[in-house]
């Protein structure tokens, strides 16, 4: 009984921490005083960017099965849905910025922007587009699971690092503290999941299968 209560409390704590890390940055951005001087497309673009960054935190946790109380099938389904959500957020982000200021958005997309952070965002965007294409064509491409995993993980790492650098260099509606905590969490979750899934687990499996093991 005590064991159960303790694991229940830990589970609740894990979910609460995840929710706080994801929701707080978006909530802070949604109450920024800067919003008063911005038009609707710009407000939506900013919030979509913050929401996309928040969703990035869930992806490695779902992929590695770190979230307590979820079955593997549920995690896989959620991972795909959250991925689609990130793609939608980035579309709103870029689209809203384009409507707000076409020359600034075009400069960023053409890599001639005066702002040093836009190139990181654009790199992450292309990696995201490549991921979406890979997901859509997965069956047709006939990729072996190992090749798929490498491609997907390399692109995911580019998305994560690009997005985090992009967000940290921007002075905008996001709060410094909640943004930094979220970015740190995204980096840590991605690093732990990639090392666990692609390095430690295959190594352990190989060792277990090796003759004379045990």
């Amino acid at each position: 009984m005590a064991e159960n209560a303790r694991s229940g409390a830990a589970r609740l704590l894990a979910w609460a921490a995840l929710a706080a890390a994801m929701i707080a940055p978006v909530a802070v951005a949604a109450t920024s005083p800067l919003l008063a001087s911005r038009g609707a497309p710009y407000v939506i673009a900013g919030l979509a960017g913050a929401a996309g960054l928040a969703l990035l935190l869930a992806q490695p946790l779902l992929a590695a099965g770190y979230l307590p109380g979820l079955r593997a099938a549920t995690e896989r389904r959620l991972h795909r849905r959250v991925g689609a959500g990130i793609a939608l957020a980035v579309a709103l982000h870029v689209g809203g910025l384009y409507v707000t200021s076409p020359p600034d958005a075009l400069d960023a997309l053409l890599l001639v922007s005066p702002t040093p952070f836009s190139v990181y965002g654009v790199a992450a965007m292309w990696a995201l587009i490549a991921t979406a294409a890979l997901v859509a064509l997965r069956g047709r491409l006939g990729l072996r699971p190992a090749a798929w995993r490498i491609a997907h993980n390399v692109l995911a790492v580019v998305i994560v690092i690009g997005s985090v650098v992009h967000a940290m260099l921007i002075e905008g509606t996001m709060g410094a503290l909640s943004k930094t905590v979220l970015c740190g969490a995204v980096l840590a979750a991605t690093a732990v999941a990639v090392v666990h899934l692609r390095v430690l687990r295959p190594m352990r499996r190989r060792r277990a299968q090796a003759p004379g093991a045990g």
Binding site: S101, P103, D104, D107, V112, S113, P114, T115
Partner: peptide, 8 residues
């Protein structure tokens, strides 16, 4: 002239 100077 600075990069992006003439935007908007």
């Amino acid at each position: 002239t600075m990069r992006g100077g003439s935007n908007n």
